[in-house]
């Protein structure tokens, strides 16, 4: 305890706030990714292990579009999710659909295998080191807030991700389309018997979840390096986030995404050695107290 207080007193405030900000930025990515995972898990009952690779594809697509066609960041922010999302639609329609009736382990192994294939082929082509992606001119620089320096791009990522998360949450929880999605998550057969084409809804949900991962990837490209393995580094933490939030809960995914980022940031200040493990400690603690996760409806 003495050490921690010492650290706190001796720490310059801007370094402290800087770490918290980094934590929140990571949290923004956790939130966007775990939201897509929760959406997909709810509708498809598949643990989408290829989610990290789809996030990587988003970043990679932005990089490729820039390198080959000179397409800029803003256009990529729209195009990359569309392309990767379309890939998701095809993947669901022709591959994933075959394993729904089987044990969930098949879905997990299948998506894990596809992730390895995707990451492997990009590594073969580009090597495992990252490629830089420049911050768009409009978002360079930053503001001196007095207690910390705030890079414009990070502020943009924070605002964009909160907006995206809120929009997805709103559609899911508050609109008619959302009520179809919630109902189909609960009792797909009955929703079919009301005349709704649930297969099409599942297809579109998967496409949306994948596009969400790709948006996160494009947003991440200028912050982290664009590398074939960027997804596999983050995805394990994201799974922990989903478990902490409660499987299938939208608000749980968002809140616990930011929470985990925040806690990681704090840990980096006080006890850096634990910063990559703290999320799993948090997960274990949450599961001990609330086995269904913070926002889980039932165990």
């Amino acid at each position: 305890m003495h050490n921690i207080l010492d650290t706190l007193y001796n720490l310059p405030i801007d370094a402290f706030m800087g770490q918290l900000m980094l934590g929140l930025i990571n949290g923004a990515f956790y939130a966007m990714l775990s939201l897509g995972l929760a959406l997909i898990f709810g509708m498809l009952n598949i643990v989408n292990f290829v989610h990290g690779a789809q996030y990587m594809l988003g970043a990679m697509m932005a990089w490729i579009l820039l390198q080959t066609l000179g397409i800029n960041y803003w256009a990529s922010l729209l195009l990359a999710p569309l392309i990767v999302g379309a890939f998701g639609l095809l993947l669901e329609r022709f591959v994933l659909r075959r394993v729904y009736a089987l044990d969930p382990a098949y879905g997990l192994l299948l998506t894990f295998g596809i992730a390895l294939l995707l990451e492997g082929s990009f590594r073969q082509k580009l090597g495992s080191s990252g490629q830089p992606y420049a911050i768009p001119a409009e978002l360079r620089g930053g503001w001196d807030l007095g207690f910390m320096y705030m890079p414009t791009y990070r502020a943009w990522v924070l605002v964009a991700s909160i907006t995206i998360c809120f929009a997805v949450w709103y559609v899911f929880e508050r609109t008619r389309l959302g009520s179809y999605l919630r109902a189909a998550t609960e009792k797909p057969q009955l929703v079919r018997a009301f005349g709704i084409d649930v297969s099409k809804m599942i297809n579109l949900t998967y496409g949306l979840g994948v596009a969400l991962a790709a948006v996160a990837g494009v947003l991440a490209a200028p912050i982290y390096q664009v590398s074939p393995l960027m997804g596999s580094n983050i995805i394990i933490v994201v799974f922990a986030v989903v478990v902490i939030g409660g499987l299938g809960s939208m608000s749980g995914a968002i809140v616990s995404g930011f929470l985990v980022g925040f806690v990681e940031g704090l840990t980096k200040v006080f006890y850096p050695a634990a910063s990559s493990t703290v999320v799993f400690v948090l997960m274990a603690c949450v599961l001990l107290v609330k086995p269904a996760g913070l926002f889980g409806r039932r165990a």
């Binding site: 008619r176 009520s179 919630r182 109902a183 009792k187 929703v191 079919r192 018997a193 649930v198 409806r297």
Partner: peptide, 30 residues
């Protein structure tokens, strides 16, 4: 099932099939 429903056949299941994540009104309008 969805095509059969669209021809005008409606089904009320034995377990009532009320959705827990939907309000009464949302259930009604589903």
């Amino acid at each position: 099932a969805n095509q059969i429903a669209r021809q005008g056949l409606a089904y009320c299941p034995e377990d009532r099939g009320i959705f827990a994540t939907l309000s009464v009104e949302e259930n009604l309008r589903l």
